[in-house]
Simulated scan of single mutants.
Amino acid sequence: MTTHSHRIVPRPGPDFGLDGDIPRYWFDGDPFKSRFFDAMSLLFPEGEKFFIACVRDFRDDIEDPQLLAQVKDFIYQEGQHGAVHTQFNNRLKAQGIAVDHALQRQREIMFGTFRKRFSPRFTLAQTAAAEHLTAMMAHGFFGKHGLFDKADARIRAMYAWHAVEEIEHKAVAFDVYRTVAKGGYFTRVGAMLLTSFSFPMHVFILMRHMFERDGIEQRGRLWLKGLWWLYGPGGLFPRLLPHYLRYFKPGFHPWQHGDMRVYQRWTASFEDSGGDAIAAADAVMQDAQARAA
C-alpha cells in the first residue's frame, strides 16, 4: 500500500485574515487552549523545513515516478504551511512573544543536532513519525467531538486547511522511508519515541514563556486544568491513543487508518465555495456537531 492512489493537491495557502482583530485567547477565551495551539503554530515553520530537508535527502534515489510526484507535492504543501504559520507567528511576535529566539533554538536542535548527529535514514524516520502525529491530530481534532467549535473562525480555518493537507500527504515520508531509504521497524519505532517526547516538550516550554509574557498569575492551577484537558480520562489525547499506537504495529501503513469524512467534507465545501477555506472549516464543524447530536 502506498500514496499512489491518494491525491495530493498543491493549493496556494489561503488568506485567513490572520492580521485581523483576533483575540489573544481565541480558543473559547481559554489561555491554556489558545496558547497550546499558538505554541504548535510557532514550531511549524522550522519543522516544515526540517521535514522537507529529510525527504529531499532521498529524492534523487526515487525511481518510481508516481512517488517522485508525490514528494514534489509534499514539499509544496509543507512550504505553504510554513508560510501561513509564519504569518500567524507574526501576530504572536506583536504580543511580545520571543518568536525569533524560539525559532533559532529550534533550528539549532533540528539542524544543528538531529541533522548532524543522526543518519539521514533516522531523520527521515523522525519525519515519518511527525507526519503520523500531525495526521493523527488532523483526523481527530475535527471529528465528532467538535474540538474547535468555540475557536475563532479564522484560526479554526487555518488549522482545518493544514489538517486536510496533512491527511493528503500523510504517507509520503513513510513510503520514502520504507521503499527508498529501506528503513526498518526498530529505527521507525525509536524515531517515534523520540518525537513523541521532544515535540510536546517544546510545546510546553513555549507555553510557559507565553504565560509569563501574558502576566498570568496562579499558573500552577492553569497547568493542572490544561493538562487534565489534554491527558485526563476522556481528554484530547486519550481519544487519539488507539490511532497513535497503531504506528507500532510491524505491518503498519498510514493509509490503513483514519476517518476520511472530515477530509471529504472539507474538500467538497472548499470546491463548492470557490476556495473559501473559512466556509469549508465551518462546514466541517457543522458536520461534527450533527454527528455528535
Score class of each variant (00 low, 15 high):
74 F>G: 03
134 T>G: 01
41 S>R: 14
142 F>I: 03
170 K>R: 15
243 H>M: 12
130 A>N: 00
110 M>P: 01
40 M>G: 14
121 R>K: 13
149 D>C: 11
190 G>D: 02
174 F>L: 04
194 L>Q: 01
171 A>V: 02
21 D>L: 08
223 W>E: 05
67 L>E: 08
293 A>F: 13
171 A>K: 10
33 K>L: 13
180 V>L: 02
14 P>H: 13
146 G>A: 14
261 R>V: 02
215 G>K: 08
241 L>E: 07
193 L>N: 01
106 Q>S: 12
239 R>W: 12
226 G>V: 05
160 A>S: 09
60 D>Q: 15
135 A>W: 00
39 A>T: 05
93 K>T: 06
93 K>H: 12
282 D>N: 14
69 A>T: 13
162 H>N: 04
152 D>Q: 13
164 V>I: 02
149 D>L: 09
162 H>W: 03
71 V>Y: 11
230 L>S: 12
242 P>W: 12
256 Q>M: 09
231 Y>M: 08
48 E>D: 10
95 Q>A: 03
18 L>D: 04
209 H>I: 05
25 Y>C: 09
234 G>L: 12
17 G>Q: 02
162 H>T: 00
235 G>Y: 09
64 D>N: 10
55 V>C: 15
211 F>D: 01
243 H>W: 13
256 Q>A: 10
189 V>T: 07
207 M>S: 10
4 H>G: 10
112 G>A: 12
79 G>K: 14
216 I>E: 03
106 Q>E: 08
211 F>A: 02
80 Q>D: 07
172 V>M: 09
122 F>N: 05
287 D>C: 06
78 E>S: 08
47 G>D: 02
156 R>W: 07
191 A>T: 00
45 P>F: 05
54 C>F: 00
45 P>R: 02
20 G>M: 01
